[in-house]
């Protein structure tokens, strides 16, 4: 079984769950490919969440738990987007989990 993502010249190792082994190799093309393996067509709404998660990670060095993501999204984008159902519609297998994987971040701590 392949444990690598390949986009053009970029080859990126990932673990058995699809998370990047080296998060520094992430770029937006790679995100498109990871999203495809997750059966997600990335829209601007998806990118809003991914970019938010990456900014959060940059600042705090962790990916937020889902309830924190909802709370923080509400603060930044309002109640329509700071909403669990909205986030699950974008990322059906769990927003924190799936969006982190596509965004090239480690699996959120405490996420089973």
């Amino acid at each position: 079984m392949s444990m690598q993502y390949k986009v053009g010249d970029i080859v990126a190792d990932h673990d058995e769950e699809g998370y990047l082994t080296d998060i520094t190799v992430w770029n937006r093309d790679l995100a498109l490919l990871i999203a495809k393996t997750e059966n997600i067509e990335l829209t601007p709404e998806h990118w809003e969440v991914i970019d938010f998660l990456r900014e959060y990670y940059e600042e705090y060095q962790i990916a937020p738990a889902i309830r924190i993501l909802v709370k923080e999204m509400k603060k930044k984008f309002g109640p329509d987007k700071g909403d669990q159902k909205y986030l699950y519609e974008l990322f059906p297998y769990g927003p924190a989990k799936q969006a982190c994987k596509i965004g090239g971040l480690p699996k959120p701590t405490g996420c089973i």
Partner: peptide
């Protein structure tokens, strides 16, 4: 190494 001291600042949200 990961500068996890920054993570302490997120704990208020938790």
């Amino acid at each position: 190494m990961k500068n996890f001291s920054r993570t302490f600042k997120a704990l208020g949200d938790y």
